[in-house]
Computed example of a mutant assay.
Amino acid sequence: MSTVPGTPTVTVRFWAAAREAAGTETERHAGRTLGGVLDAAVDAHPALATVVKASTFLIDGRSADRSALLEDGSTVEVLPPFAGG
């Protein structure tokens, strides 16, 4: 992960199918927006592309969309649709 000085670095947590596609539970990525971090994760794990399209996202426990700005040290959660009840 190369970063531009001043670019936030966040922890990305993958849940369920996202974890399976990424092959890991968590990893760190740098980016100014949620979309940028998601793009970096998909670049690192191409199998995530389909999962990310169907997922919802949290930043520090709050719902967010791809345009959301990130702060250094935040936690992003990738939540694919869950089945069951």
Rank of each mutant, 00 (worst) to 15 (best):
A83G: 04
T26Q: 08
D60M: 11
R19M: 02
D39L: 07
V10N: 08
G73Q: 09
T11S: 07
P46C: 14
L69K: 12
V4T: 05
L70K: 14
T56R: 10
V10C: 14
G6A: 06
D43F: 08
G61I: 06
E71T: 12
D72W: 02
V37I: 11
D72F: 09
S2I: 04
A18Q: 02
F14Q: 01
L69I: 09
H29A: 11
D60I: 04
R62L: 12
R66N: 12
V52N: 03
F57R: 00
F82S: 00
V76F: 13
A54P: 15
G61E: 13
T24C: 03
T7E: 13
D60V: 04
T75E: 13
K53T: 12
G73P: 11
T9N: 07
A54E: 10
E77N: 12
S67M: 08
R13P: 02
F14W: 08
L69S: 14
A21V: 13
G23K: 04
A17Q: 06
E20C: 00
W15K: 02
R19V: 00
G84P: 00
K53S: 14
V37N: 05
T75V: 04
P8E: 11
V4G: 04
V52M: 02
D39S: 14
P80R: 00
A16N: 01
F14P: 00
P8M: 09
S2V: 05
F14E: 01
A83F: 11
A47Y: 06
A21D: 09
A21W: 01
P8A: 03
A40P: 07
L79Y: 07
S67F: 06
